[in-house]
Design a protein around this nucleic acid. Sequence first.
DNA 1: AATGAATGAGCATTCATTCAT
DNA 2: GATGAATGAATGCTCATTCAT
Lengths: 199, 199, 199, 199
Amino acid sequence: MQVLKDEIRESIYQAALTEFSEKGYEKASMRNIAKRAGITAGNMYRYFKNKDDLFYTVTSPAYDEIVRFIVEQELPRGNDREWENMNVDKQTDGIVSIYLEHKKELLVIIDGSKGTRYERAKDDIIRLVENMITNILKLRSETDGLAMPDPHFIHVLSASVIEGVILILKQYKEDEKVREMVRQFIGFIFKDFTERISG
Amino acid sequence: MQVLKDEIRESIYQAALTEFSEKGYEKASMRNIAKRAGITAGNMYRYFKNKDDLFYTVTSPAYDEIVRFIVEQELPRGNDREWENMNVDKQTDGIVSIYLEHKKELLVIIDGSKGTRYERAKDDIIRLVENMITNILKLRSETDGLAMPDPHFIHVLSASVIEGVILILKQYKEDEKVREMVRQFIGFIFKDFTERISG
Amino acid sequence: MQVLKDEIRESIYQAALTEFSEKGYEKASMRNIAKRAGITAGNMYRYFKNKDDLFYTVTSPAYDEIVRFIVEQELPRGNDREWENMNVDKQTDGIVSIYLEHKKELLVIIDGSKGTRYERAKDDIIRLVENMITNILKLRSETDGLAMPDPHFIHVLSASVIEGVILILKQYKEDEKVREMVRQFIGFIFKDFTERISG
Amino acid sequence: MQVLKDEIRESIYQAALTEFSEKGYEKASMRNIAKRAGITAGNMYRYFKNKDDLFYTVTSPAYDEIVRFIVEQELPRGNDREWENMNVDKQTDGIVSIYLEHKKELLVIIDGSKGTRYERAKDDIIRLVENMITNILKLRSETDGLAMPDPHFIHVLSASVIEGVILILKQYKEDEKVREMVRQFIGFIFKDFTERISG
DNA sequence: AATGAATGAGCATTCATTCAT
DNA sequence: GATGAATGAATGCTCATTCAT
């Protein structure tokens, strides 16, 4: 057999995913992951080089997809509302789709990655939202003369939006329900957005 | 020597507060707290039974105040908007005031209480906001016939509001600035609230 | 008490010295050193930061003295035999004196320092002897027209001399006996040295 | 399939030889030897009972030959210098020849046998030289009335000679060069030997 | 015969907690 | 009251060896 038993590899993966979810990277214990996977600690090292390797094997596909998505986002091209609406929807849907593919893994990245190089991932996503909002508002300030709000305010708003979305992701099992709730939530926050923000 | 004892107790308290803020309950080190307090590790155990005891001594007053505040919130009595506006302001101010009294302790409860029985404190606060919003909407639905939104939606919204507020609390040092930003943020979220939520 | 118990520190030192002598740095076991010292493994870390710290605490005074000695050696100034004779004696006595102060420690450096930054110490000492011999022969080649031998030959000779000296150091307990044997051995090797080397 | 078996056995042998040369017995890794041999670790145990077995399989032929050679050395029969000169040359050549047949194996025995029962092999060889020298001197003391030097001195001298020879063995690849250098070195050490030793 | 999966003891190190003084 | 020495269990990780297939 050239490959290690896929079954075991998978059970380690799942055990690690659970352990990392519950305790985060630093507090997760290799011995405990092994126990969950039903093997000995020593044997785990045949499948994964070390704790880091295991962690990144579990999280990096999800992380990479998020990063790629963030990098790919385009700046607004025209100064029309159409871009705004489309873009918000597109970006929201993009994030949600990535999440639906890697639910638990992403939650590990978001909540349990302290001590790893992913510990700033949540901030990166917040910054994406910040940029998106800032771009929309710039567009409006050019066309409608709308005054720009305090950048800190935009940051706070973005963080709070992301927290809401994460909560939805955590709370609902069904993909369709997740999409619907995220849409509803984003819709609520940004309804009459520029009107409300200017006053 | 009672005087000396209090001094030391206080210095352990401050050292623990700093340590818990920086590392959270689980990663905090008793040795390090002792070092920060300028005493020996062994001596700490004369003042506090163990790590748990120390943690709850540091955090429970703030926790209790938050809980008391949450429990005390009164249901709406009349069916007028006045109650609504007053109540949002009152409750927001209440939370902010409690925070301003126990800044570091509350941040420990919110961000560093994993592994303790306070790890769900943030959720409790979120539930307060949830109740508040629900009450407002019930009022409206009775007077205006407004349809109630999905309770989950209210939960998500509450969580995201709280996250925003926490971020503000973390970000600004000056009390007055904190109050102002919280007001601005809450104002933005709830502007035309019932109108937006119904469609 | 400001200082850790000197007794215990000393017993760890001795236990480590013995363990390092018997197994060398890499194979030496902290657990075993602790057992030899009659304490628990954990407790050892109150006295020494880690295995490295313990190793260098044990060996560096001896190492530093050797290095200082090597660095201090002066080049020949005149072209007389007097320098030669004096210098050989002086350097031999110097090395032996350093050894007598740090017997076991030096043997650890020489035989058990693989994996540490002292692993080249024996070579350094050999090179000292090489330089010494080379200098003597250069002197002679200038005054007597003696042909220089193959540098490899000098290297081999130096290594073999050092090995002999080390053996003496290992074999004799009494300081005076060590000095005598080293003198005798060096005397034998270098007797009629230039005459023999030239053919 | 006996043919296959021999091939594999041989490749394990070579792999082990290389590994033992590089790391010595204790630090050598069975896994690594297997990898070098291009087989699995488990399979190695079909050919060799354990690490010890493998080590002795690799080293014992060379070891035995050395021992046999040492044991076979005859005492001087006549009281002439001829025997002396011949004997030194014969024994030197004998050792060198054995070495040239088992280069790597012998170096493993000499430098990498700590933790095995061969760890004293170098000493045995040294004792051979010791005996040889002692015999020569006895001969002389009978014929010329030469006083016998301290036996320890002879031991030290032997050890240092052996060290020199080993260094030469390590340093030169070509058999002829090895023989030449050894002859030169031995020649230097023993030139005017009895004259020098007596004063 | 051969594979590679599995084991279990070992390693250095950390840390909450206890306790004699 | 206070000290710091001591403990023992836990951590991530390695490796010779065994074993089912």
